[in-house]
């Protein structure tokens, strides 16, 4: 049983012209076994929240706290956070020239587990996980994200989710750029992970489409750097028909 607790989080993006505040008081709890959707308009700060949880150096936390089962997440380095059980499936996964997917995954698993996986079972596990996501076995020898299509990058993120088995996973717009078939495959991957583990999910999305495949327990509306409304799955349907207009207007007022 794990719990990620975010309390009154304020954070800024560091730019050459100074720091710009983006997160303006985010409070949120993600528990094992629950799926929490965060929905909000473009530029509202959803990715910023995801990056701040993961510890991206481009952002600075000005106040508030992030706690994972009593541990101070903000005091940890990026890799310590991952080893503590946090995972971020990125909206824009990064290309790493010259580093193969299999080498990358193996290095990561070794770091997370504290020992290198047994070669034979590892190769088999990786192959199966790739087959589940209908990824060509050839991906293992390609360089990380290099020349991957948008959909292939997202499958690769979900492949990692399944192999790394985090306690709490943040999925940042895993649905964007996917056609319906790819969305189904990726969603099935996420659902398999949910069933096989007790992880808590924070699902960041712009559209309700993915929520037809991955059922949320809680839906948060995120506008202008904070959560402005929280409800059950039915809130997603309201957003689907009405959009964010009422919330953004209220935020402007």
């Amino acid at each position: 049983m794990s719990r990620l607790t975010i309390t009154d989080l304020h954070a800024s993006v560091i730019t050459e012209d100074g720091d710009t505040p983006i997160l303006r008081g985010v409070s949120l709890v993600v528990e094992s076994g629950t799926t929490n959707a965060i929905m909000g308009p473009n530029g509202s700060g959803k990715s910023t929240l995801a990056y701040v949880i993961a510890g991206h150096p481009k952002y600075t936390v000005t106040s508030g706290s992030i706690d994972l089962d009593g541990q101070d997440v903000l005091a940890m380095s990026v890799d310590e956070r991952a080893r503590a059980g946090l995972f971020l499936a990125m909206q824009y996964p990064v290309e790493i020239p010259g580093v193969s997917v299999s080498n990358f995954l193996r290095t990561s698993i070794t770091a997370l587990k504290g020992e290198a996986p047994k070669l034979r079972t590892w190769t088999k596990d990786m192959k199966e996980a790739m087959a589940d996501l209908q990824m060509d076995p050839g991906f293992a020898t390609r360089n990380v994200n290099e020349g991957f299509s948008g959909g292939e990058k997202k499958r690769h993120e979900i492949l990692q989710l399944g192999l790394m088995q985090p306690k709490i996973a943040v999925l940042d717009e895993t649905d964007s750029g996917l056609d319906v078939d790819a969305l189904k495959i990726v969603s099935e991957g996420v659902n398999r992970f949910k069933e096989s583990s007790d992880a808590g999910l924070l699902l960041i999305t712009h559209y309700t489409r993915i929520l037809r495949y991955i059922k949320p327990d809680v839906v948060h509306v995120f506008v202008d750097g904070r959560i402005v409304a929280t409800g059950g799955p039915e809130l997603a349907d309201v957003l689907e028909s009405d959009g964010y207009e009422t919330y953004t207007a209220a935020a402007r007022a």
Binding site: G55, H56, S77, D79
Partner: peptide, 25 residues
Amino acid sequence: DEQLFYLQSRGIPESVARQLVVRGF
């Protein structure tokens, strides 16, 4: 830095991440 962040966010310590990037280069 984005490459380092990506690798580190997968649990890989910074020194190993740098090694991977330089080897890859």
